[in-house]
Amino acid sequence: MMGMLARGAENIYWLGRYLERAEGVARMLQVLEQISLEIRGLDPELSNRIWEDLLHIYPGSGMGAPEGNDPDQTADAFIREFLLSSSNTLSVAYSIRSARENARVIREYLTREAFVLLNECHIRLDAFTQASEINRMQMRDALSFTRQEVFGIWGAIQQTFSRDEGLRFLDMGTVIERAYRTLLLLRVKLPFILNTPAQSDLPIYYARIRAMLKAVASLENYRRSHGADLDPMQVSRFLLFDQRAPHAVQVCLRMLKRQIDELEYGSPMTHPSKLLGKLAARMEFEEQEILASSSLETTCSEIAEQVIEIHEAISRLYFTV
């Protein structure tokens, strides 16, 4: 059976990762801006500090913790940096530009519909990055349209892509990025949400749990499953294991396993497959142990490390022939 060009597979895998990252960062910025506003009257200091979450969920941006105490200036600085910066490799603009570069390299695998939508998104966002003056309202618009356009690109991909290796690598990139960010989000937020707050802090506490769910596009799904009751363990379980949550870690790992199984159908088991099998089995059979672990955030950290190992094994096996 004819394989896909290794460099093509790598680019399409990263196309998936960058699209997922662009949408994830844009969503996170929207969520942080909203929670920051929501709690500003209750806890101005936290309203400023909450932006640091971004630095932990998307580490490596090179940006430091907020210096001043003005929440508006902090919000402005973070949104500008993570939306428009061309040097920050985690910014939305960088991800869209990189996704487009990946798409140009593998254009023969893409459909015209998918490429045009991605190119349009890049051109539109690039106009913002080139603009000398851009205010907060315009940045909000840019966040909204980028998310919408990324959804449009995914729609075009699902509707028009050939069901072959290319789509598998794209999906693999997407779910690895998604699982990894969900795990980092849990690692950052669990120490807070698993501690019972004082009665007076409850409004902020629940606002932060809602924000956490929104950050992985899961608040509505959670409510549909569990109603309005924001029980912290229930939320943790939802984001780690619930089959109804598209960003749940186990859902992502199952999707990844399905793609790898199809890719390797009839072949001896490969290293990424073994690593993934081990992790998937743990998630499948040790749900209670994981949730009951004394430090759930540490466990999330360990799982995140294992996801990175799987990513590296995939890169070595498929992209470095």
Binding site: M1, M2, G3, M4, L5, A6, R7, G8, A9, I106, R107, E108, Y109, L110, E165, F169, L263, Y318, V321
Partner: peptide
């Protein structure tokens, strides 16, 4: 490449062994 349904390769994707040309693929 897209219109012909052929892979688009660069030099680094190809190797020559035993006077035959090969491309590096996922398989």
């Amino acid at each position: 490449a897209r219109e012909m349904g052929a892979p688009l390769v660069e030099g680094r994707d190809l190797i020559v062994e035993d006077d035959q040309v090969f491309m590096r693929t996922t398989r």
